[in-house]
């Protein structure tokens, strides 16, 4: 059993589950516990288990996914820069207003990646210093990577004025 699991088990008994696939190790927090446990868990990983870099934050929408329980998920990938060990922390969230604590107080690198998750999935992060849209225009109201948003959008892309040659 990896060393970090001992630390996590001692500090957060029964709060998380683990899984693995190929060489990926994962720790999952369900939608009930995630808002409460996620931040202390990440802090423990950073301060006591040596995972000093957050290399990845990404969102997933599990709407209609086989056997899915909770809808949204944010995946935090942490890396130990001395040993090269990696771990993924998956925190779930649910409609109607998915909220998770922000990791920016721990890692400055989470700033833009969380903004992107907010932009694409509408998952809000509490205590984020600057949570606004990053890729889509600010007037935009949908969250494009959600599974119930169509690939070609609702026609927003064609809604601009046309210039004819004579008037330009």
């Amino acid at each position: 059993m990896p060393a970090y699991l001992d630390v996590l088990n001692a500090k957060f008994p029964n709060a998380f589950t683990t899984s693995a696939f190929r060489d990926n190790q994962r720790v999952q927090l369900d939608a009930e516990t995630a808002p409460r446990v996620l931040f202390p868990l990440l802090r423990t990983l950073k301060e006591q288990c040596g995972f000093d870099m957050l290399f990845e934050v990404g969102g997933i929408d599990y709407l209609h996914y086989p056997d899915a329980v909770d809808r949204y998920c944010v995946v935090y990938g942490v890396l130990n820069t001395t040993t090269g060990e990696r771990l993924f922390v998956k925190a779930f969230a649910n409609d109607p207003d998915p909220v998770l604590p922000s990791a920016v107080p721990l890692w400055e690198g989470a700033n833009w990646m969380e903004r992107e998750v907010f932009d694409m999935y509408g998952i809000a992060f509490t205590d984020h210093p600057d949570l606004r849209r990053i890729l889509m225009p600010e007037e935009y109201t949908s969250f494009p990577l959600r599974k119930d948003y169509p690939l070609r959008g609702h026609g927003e892309r064609h809604n601009f004025q046309h210039l004819t040659r004579a008037e330009s």
Binding site: P150, R152, H154, G155, E156, N159, Q161
Partner: peptide
């Protein structure tokens, strides 16, 4: 367009 004009999100 797939939506009526009054429902479009980003205006001209």
């Amino acid at each position: 367009t797939e939506l009526p004009v009054e429902e479009l999100v980003v205006a001209p």
